[in-house]
Simulated scan of single mutants.
Amino acid sequence: MTRAADPVPHTPPGPSAARATLAGFCAALVGVGIARFGYTPLIPLLISQHWFEAGQAAYLGAFNLLGYLAGALLADPLARRLPLPLVLRASMIASAIGMLACAWHAPFGWFVLWRVVTGVSGGILTVLAPAAVLSRIPFHRQGAVGGILFGGVGLGIVASGTLVPLLMRFGLSETWLGLGFICVIGVLAAWNGWPEVRRAPVAAVEGTRPGRNPRLWIVIVCYGLNGLGFVPFMLFLVDMIARGRGFGIDAGALCWVVFGLAALAGPMVCGWFADKMGIDIALPLAFALQAGAAALVVAPVPFWLTLVGAAVIGVFVPGIVPLVLGRVRDALPGDPRRQARGWTACTAMLALSTAAGGYGMSALFARGVGYDVLFLLGALAIVLALALDLAGLAFARRR
């Protein structure tokens, strides 16, 4: 899933495959699992402890997504000009500092700065770390290792959902420090695991435009719409459970842990279904399940059904990646280089849609729009992705 940033062959000796895999896992844990998703269970606490108003807390999540977009766009230019291990270490350090800096109950602008910083570093790590690690992994093992790498996102969600209620007994500042301490551990664990990888020249990333391939454009737009559907979960899930539906912060944290455990299993589960059913069935089914789950989470149903909805979405947060990759390969059969460019375009669309969606939904929330409307908007975006994907399948069959 990182072919667009593949290194050139014959890289110099470096750390073992196991150490490189650990480094990539820690990068996902720190840059996305904690620095992005670790913020979600903090939102109701920031509001109840009067650090920020509800709208401000939502905007901070949106600023992180905006930073992620910037980081994804900056990643390749940075890696072509600087040693890759330096870029990756600096990005992990920035994520850790950003979490620690938020322990100070400072003005809103201070938090905007550090949420953007953690977003930028997360975007850089997401683009560059898997490619660096997979350069040390034999081709026949890259699928399994890729699943391990993105398992760091799920572990970060589980860790934040488990630790936040415990750390809050000491205070909100201490909670930020605890999450920051996890990031520091991740930085140290990954420090010597990054291989020295020569980045391919500009030719490896040039021509990333999808061209005139209608099927590829459909995949790109569907992936962006699916990412837009994830935004309410990334920003509001815990707060909606804790305050919106009145279940309390412990119930919100439990829902977030279930979400994270599902995310841990997501790539393996979705990969297995794709192998069994084929991409043409697995991807539309994934869109349909997500749309139903997004609506279920805000429906007036028993709490256990809310957990089911959160788990379904959690599976697809990382699990949608192998399914979309499969559709990209179908759209560009037998052309790995164009497939890599197509995936780069998909990644850019995802970053753009989540950043725009995060800002837009935060603005709506600040103006008093309820959780039910925001989650239903997310469900609608996924329904549009389903309809567009089915239309693309019909177009392909007619051809």
Rank of each mutant, 00 (worst) to 15 (best):
A129K: 03
L74R: 09
A62M: 12
G123S: 09
A103E: 12
C222H: 07
S95M: 04
G151P: 08
I47E: 15
R19S: 14
S48V: 11
G123P: 02
A340M: 04
L188P: 07
A132L: 07
A263S: 14
A72H: 05
G146C: 03
G71A: 02
F170C: 05
V153F: 00
S362N: 09
A35D: 10
P210Q: 04
S135V: 05
V219Y: 01
Y359S: 10
V158F: 00
A35K: 03
D280V: 12
L155G: 06
M99H: 11
D275S: 15
L88V: 01
L149C: 10
L73V: 11
I124E: 06
R327D: 14
A72R: 03
A94T: 14
W114S: 13
R136Y: 02
P284Y: 01
D250F: 07
G207Y: 07
A331D: 08
L149A: 07
T40R: 03
T40N: 12
D389Y: 10
L125Q: 06
W272Q: 15
Q339L: 03
V32H: 07
R215Q: 15
P12K: 12
V133E: 06
A131F: 01
V317G: 02
V312L: 01
G24F: 00
F273T: 14
V297Q: 07
G360K: 06
L377Y: 09
A253W: 00
V158K: 03
V328C: 06
A96M: 13
L29Q: 04
V219Q: 08
L289E: 03
A356Y: 05
P15A: 08
R136E: 10
L65I: 05
F287I: 00
I157S: 02
P85H: 08
A58I: 04
R81L: 10
W176L: 05
G224I: 01
G271Y: 05
R199W: 04
G38Y: 01
W343F: 11
A291E: 07
R81P: 05
L386W: 03
M234T: 13
L390R: 15
L128W: 12
V184S: 05
G266Q: 06
L163G: 09
R245A: 11
R115P: 11
S91R: 00
W217G: 14
A190P: 12
L323P: 05
C270A: 15
G211W: 01
R198W: 02
A311Y: 00
R115K: 09
A381L: 00
A204P: 05
L128F: 09
L325W: 10
A131D: 01
A345I: 00
V269E: 04
G119D: 05
G154F: 01
E206T: 12
R80Q: 15
L42H: 06
A57S: 14
P267L: 04
L350D: 02
L216Q: 10
